[in-house]
């Protein structure tokens, strides 16, 4: 009956450990194992199938000589920067406006967020149709009598990226807005009283008091949105298929095409390793910041 001996620590909480096995397996096999496998085989000579013949940076050298890859990179950078900038500005403005004790707040919020519930495929196809140069907005406005009206972003190599941007912003801004609104409302309400007593105009209070206090929410939103942008794939497939020509190619599509359509696994793995590196570059400073802060608080 007496239980004086310390049980083997391995079997303490045994049920919890068994229950966590799927998670442990996922982290070890998928998130660590698969990523490491990809990085390692990106240095191999793999073509249609992965092979164990390692060739150093050859795949990367070839990758960065491929114009399609370089265009993909350039596209994602331009798309990423603009999309972050625009969705943050619009998202914050919408959030600040909704915060003004308006009527029908829930209705407006519902309208701004619904595109986020849709698939990128749906978004891409709708906007492909609206921006269709021969039957979409351009034609509609021309039929109203503005014969020279031109709005053919999607058909033009130089502007197709902005067509993607319009669709991407439409889908993603609601998400930014919801987080911003939560951030704004998370700020201590006493701050507003203090600002009013000090006679600071509302817009100034938002810009110089509220925004700096929302740093945490901002940074977190930024990281999530940015990590999503790197994955951009479905929207391009549905809306432009990378065209016209290769004008709207993106890295994620490059990986998919080389992996499954073109049977050049080595290139795909090298490209995805570059994507991984990019994400780590975004992620590591954030983690450093967050963890540093938590430690300082203790």
């Amino acid at each position: 009956m007496s239980i004086a001996k310390r049980p083997n620590p391995l079997f303490r909480n045994l049920n919890a450990k068994i229950a966590a096995l799927p998670m442990i397996a996922t982290t070890l096999v998928v998130f660590l194992g698969c990523s490491i496998w990809t990085v390692i085989y990106s240095f191999s000579k793999s073509r249609a199938l992965p092979v164990n013949e390692f060739v150093g940076f050859a795949q990367y050298e070839r990758l960065f000589r491929t114009s399609r890859w370089l265009i993909s990179l350039e596209n994602i950078v331009i798309y990423g920067v603009l999309s972050l900038l625009i969705s943050f500005v619009i998202g914050f403005i919408l959030a600040a406006l909704i915060d003004q004790k308006i009527r029908f707040e829930d209705t407006f919020r519902t309208i701004y967020l619904y595109p986020f519930a849709l698939s990128f495929i749906v978004t891409g196809i709708v906007w492909q149709w609206i921006l269709n140069p021969s039957l979409g907005i351009q034609e509609t406005v021309r039929s109203w009598g503005f014969e020279n009206f031109t709005f053919d972003l999607i058909a033009n190599r130089g502007t197709v990226l902005y067509a993607l941007l319009i669709a991407g912003i439409w889908q993603g801004t609601g998400f930014v807005m919801v987080l911003m609104l939560a951030g704004i409302r998370g700020v201590d309400r006493e701050i507003w009283n203090a600002a009013r007593i000090d006679g600071i105009p509302v817009w100034k209070t938002y810009l110089f008091v509220i925004v700096p206090m929302m740093r945490g929410v901002m940074v977190t939103t930024l990281v999530i949105v940015a990590a999503g942008i790197v994955k951009l794939y479905d929207l391009v497939v549905a809306m432009t298929q990378g065209g016209p020509g290769i004008a709207s190619e993106v890295p994620a599509k490059y990986v998919y095409d080389f992996m499954f359509a073109r049977a050049n696994v080595g290139q795909a793995l090298a490209a995805s390793t570059v994507m991984l590196t990019t994400v780590l570059i975004i992620l590591i400073p954030w983690v450093y910041l967050e963890y540093g802060k938590k430690k300082a608080q203790r």
């Binding site: 998928v30 194992g33 790197v230």
Partner: peptide, 17 residues
């Protein structure tokens, strides 16, 4: 690691999967 994993682009893990 799990939370970190959610930020890794799926493309990185596709082929091994």
């Amino acid at each position: 690691i799990l939370i970190f994993g959610s930020f890794i682009p799926y493309q990185v893990m596709l082929y091994p999967l």
